[in-house]
Amino acid sequence: MDMAAMRKKAREDMKGYCRVCPACDGRACAGEVPGMGGSGTGSAFMANLEALKNWRLNMRTIHGAREADTSLTLFGRKLSMPILAAPMTGVSYNMGGKLPEDVYSEMIIAGTEAAGTMGMTGDGADAAMYDGGVAAIAKHGGLGVPFIKPRAQSEIIARIRQAEQAGAVAVGMDIDGAGLITMALKGQPVGPKTFVELKEIVAATSLPFIVKGVMTPDEAQLAVGAGAAAIVVSNHGGRVLDSTPGAAEVLPAIADKIKGRAVILADGGVRSGSDVLKLLALGADAALVGRPMAVGAFGAGAEGVAALLNKMRSELVSAMLLTGTANVREVSRDILTAAR
């Protein structure tokens, strides 16, 4: 895969919405929502990358870890790597509209499957956004997770039924979408959920339920208490609330409270295999990648998505071998040093 050519095409096709910067750190697109930027000053987007940079990997080369096993099982599916595509929608108003919503979702799900892992799809003001993602997941044997915005209870449950009919391995709600500007502009009410409401939603399905947008230990415990099978530590890419900390900043305290009780996924600022290893060491079971997947899809379709994931996996293998990490299911926090 010619990565330079892929990025060039993505830059052309997303012109005016994403610059496909050499360093995707949110500085050039601050405040561009709709678009691919972060809310307000963009500080929450930037905080995700800064939080990862604040951790350094301890290099160790005197050990017996001669091979790096990146495989794991999530929601009953064997995956080649602990790297999943994050749910993203709004192609028309966030990415320029050169791809139809359903085609974009198909590229994400097909690309992640080709790389041996799993993709997630999202929800939005236009019904085609959620429907397209669910259709792509159904086409690929249920290998994917559709996420639903925090709508009215009945609306959420109706979409859960669609996920069930599609054979999805799990279903989730990005509760961090409660303050999305784009949803408000389109007249689609979303908002926070009480513990009782969350418990009702989780109880409405036999599928593993994922709560995305958890940023504090107390809310992680509430999500698990409500029956969630997994959480995603995420500030929604910095797109809903300015001045939030980065995911890697809050992940250790959350993991200390619920590790082993639920699957912990982390999302925000992942740009390399080394970033993935850092999140695993901080307590995540797997990492989600967002904006780079859009570049892959717009630049080279499903092949671009798969190529970027495989590149990250190769980087992860290298980082594991150089830190004495034999497998992604047992990553010690001792491989990290806080930057001074």
Rank of each mutant, 00 (worst) to 15 (best):
G124I: 13
I254A: 08
G225T: 06
T244K: 12
G246K: 08
R151S: 09
A170L: 02
E249C: 10
V214G: 13
P146K: 04
A128K: 12
G187E: 12
D126M: 09
G133V: 02
D126N: 14
G167I: 00
I148K: 07
I254W: 03
K186P: 05
P252F: 10
G122A: 15
P217Q: 01
D131G: 03
G142V: 07
A136F: 00
A128C: 06
A152E: 14
H140C: 00
A184T: 14
Q221D: 07
V211Y: 08
P245E: 02
G225P: 09
L222P: 06
A223S: 13
L143K: 15
G213R: 01
I201G: 00
F195W: 10
H140M: 08
E249T: 15
V145C: 06
A136E: 01
N235R: 14
A128H: 07
G225A: 08
P150A: 11
I175A: 05
V240G: 11
G177E: 12
I148C: 14
T205P: 05
V202C: 01
D218Q: 14
A138G: 10
G141M: 11
A170D: 05
A229K: 14
G177L: 09
K199I: 04
G122S: 15
H236A: 14
G133K: 00
L251M: 08
A203V: 01
P245M: 05
I231N: 01
A253W: 07
M129R: 11
V202R: 05
F147G: 02
A138S: 06
G141H: 05
G238L: 10
V202D: 06
A135M: 01
M183F: 13
L241P: 03
R159Y: 00
V190D: 08
V171Y: 00
L180F: 07
E200W: 02
T194C: 03
K139C: 02
L198C: 12
Q188Y: 09
V202K: 01
V134S: 08
I210Y: 05
M173V: 15
V145G: 10
F147A: 10
A226R: 11
H236W: 12
Q162F: 00
D218I: 13
A163L: 02
L241S: 02
I181L: 10
E200T: 15
L180I: 13
I160D: 00
A226N: 09
K149S: 15
D218A: 14
E164R: 07
A230Q: 03
